[in-house]
Amino acid sequence: MSQSPFILQEQQFLKIRSVLERVRVECAARVVFLVDRDGQTIAFNGDIGDMDTTSFSSLAAGNVAATTSMARLIGENVFPAVVHEGENESIFISVIGRSLLVVVFDGRSTLGLVKLRAKRASFDIAAILDEMIRESQLIAASAKPAFADITDEDIDSLFS
């Protein structure tokens, strides 16, 4: 069976973006993403330049999925954080439930600072995500699904 949709309401999106902005400013990071573990971008804040954010999120999720499987092979349940250090830019990924907080930073910041601020923000993000999941389940359980009104014509029009 396919699973219920994961629904992000505007108010939750604004809350998440404000937490991401706080993390970005506190860490002096270039950009901060919140990504679903299936690879979908939930929100981001900062300078993305010409970065392909869709591909970036998909690869971040693939990266964590692979390292989580590696963790299990050596008897760990999960690696709660993954770090990639580059010459100029680095990436820190923190697993928060079914989402990933991804911080892209350069020499203006340090890994220690990013870890500390990300950990603090993770509690706020977890609370917002819990609310999202609860509301998604309520909508799924309601008599009227979110897109019950879509007609065959609506769907066909996408392919015409």
Binding site: P5, F6, L8, F13, D36
Partner: peptide, 14 residues
């Protein structure tokens, strides 16, 4: 899992 974003008005499917 379909991801519906009301803020950016997007439906994302895999």
């Amino acid at each position: 899992m379909t991801f519906i974003n009301y803020a950016s008005r997007e439906i994302n499917c895999k």
